[in-house]
Design a protein around this nucleic acid. Sequence first.
RNA 1: CGGGGCGUAGCGCAGCCUGGUAGCGCACCUGCCUUGGGCGCAGGGGGUCACAGGUUCAAAUCCUGUCGCCCCGACCA
Length: 598
Amino acid sequence: MQRWSKLFIPTLREAPADAEVASHKFLVRAGYIRQLAAGIYSYLFLAQRTILKITDIVREEMNTIGQELFLPALNPRDVWEASGRWDVMGDNMFRLKDRKGADLCLGMTHEEIMTDIARKELRSYKQLPQIWYQIQTKFRDEPRPKSGLLRVRQFTMKDSYSFDIDRAGLDKSFDLHDAVYRRIFNRCGLEFVAVEADSGSMGGSQSQEFMVYTDAGEDLVASCAKCGYAGNLEKATSKLEAVEDLPANPSGKREKVYTPGTKTIDDVAAFLKTPVNNNMKSLAFMMTDGTSPAGATIHRPLLVLMRGNDQMNEAKLSGAVGGREFRPMQEEEIVKYFNSPAGYLGPVGLKQVRVVENKDTANYVGDADQFVVVMDEALRGRKNLVSGANELDYHFTGLNIGTDFEVTACADLRNVVEGEGCPRCGEALKLGKAVEIGHIFKLGTKYAESMGAKVLDSDGKEVTVIMGSYGIGVERILTACIEQRHDENGFWLAPSIAPFTAVVTPVNVKDTALLEASEKIGQQLEAAGYDVLLDDRNERPGVKFKDADLVGIPFRINVGKKLAEGKVEVVERATAQSTEVAVADLLTHLQGLYNPRA
RNA sequence: CGGGGCGUAGCGCAGCCUGGUAGCGCACCUGCCUUGGGCGCAGGGGGUCACAGGUUCAAAUCCUGUCGCCCCGACCA
């Protein structure tokens, strides 16, 4: 049992002016954290206690499927060069030199180090599968740290890596993590959703994020309350209502129409008196596409075709062009490639690349001025569309795919809009901001291949091991809990991760009967497995109640004037519900609310 | 990296425009008082005014530069 009067719990009446989100304000006010620099925080006593409780849960659950290691945060350059990520990580990686001038970095994640161990030590399929995990500090030089502990430059991550001999093994390792993650987040008292996610340039085949809905979040998630479908906006799709096509032009062919001063889709639709979704929006980008024989980066024009009132998702486009980088065209580039001012662009008459499929991504074959044209799925099968004619003040009507223009590829590119139908069951989708607290995905052979992690299979043949990568942001569990469980006075953590499960509050410590009874109660609860904080400070009751409400402890036991009748008061922080309980019944009563030994 | 804002006591802020003794609330220390929702009274401690340079008899205040922090955007394995 700890005595508040002896502890360092620096609570504040006011939040620092630079705190915006609830978790940040309360973590500072409740004396959990103090900032050292942008995105770098010291964890004080209460924070450290809850983080240890969280990692205890993580460790306990992870031990059911894997083995804990502890790997260096300080990494030599060559390991990261072996995977190719020394360059890829760019400014996001902290880099330093040792006294001999050798390059080192601080680990952002540990695929490289784990794979390095695997390639040096694993020899046979008989040693597989393996699941190795660690709980370690990670360093990322975020361009913009923000929102307290939500986006920081130094944080704790549980990261694990699976090594399997085949796809089926990887599927199993993935499913094991999925199940364990659900248990971990449930035990921490989080309401979360598992969502389909974009695997990005990691090249994974399946990727799932664990998200907590909160306005403090930076991701957008679409989910279906009926069937449970959920997807990151970068991945989510929806059932779209069919759009009625316009009738064909009387000529049966496309027609060029004079549309003076109509630079936006809405202008064109209004001018032609056609629904916006019968218009095709043309978005022009410049894309990098490999290097020329001379070593120069090739820049290639990229045209994206969307329905008139759809928004394009950049992550989806990135996937559609094999992860190549792109940016919007500048005005003079538009004129150069389209021979037309912006506002009247369209796909008709553009020179296009040929596509040669290889095993990973499409190869574009053609001169550097030849276009890649990617069309959104929502346009597939549509007829008699309207689009710019690549000429000032003119648009085409009656455009048909295959007749009037070709596309290089067709892909899902649009952002789902709230209220659209769930792709599985048709129910209206909900869209909300969310924080990512965990991510599991199938890496495949990306690192094992580039770094040469191979074993012999049962036929004596050398095969590359298949990997998965699985992360949990430890501090984000804490912040997400606070975002989910707070009011104007403070927050309440789940008893499993709260720094203390109960605070015993003698209303007046000068009254020795109250203090002694409180101590006795505290000892009794400790014996039953509760972490008890005794608020023995010589403060007025109001001060103690305010502090207790602030710091996240789920239960409070008030020891006051009713003690004369043998009664104390149990207050549940989450509901503010207060119950008078005879001291003799206190333990049973509390166990009914939460039993640490259960 | 682009845009905006802010740096004055532990926290929240005023003072700066119009240069002249550095202030307020909370917190902290001492004493008294009080004890069921941040109580009251009296006394007290604490600030190189982010840093550097300049202007001036005199700079928290005006000028220049630098650093730091926050917000929006870009970015984000």
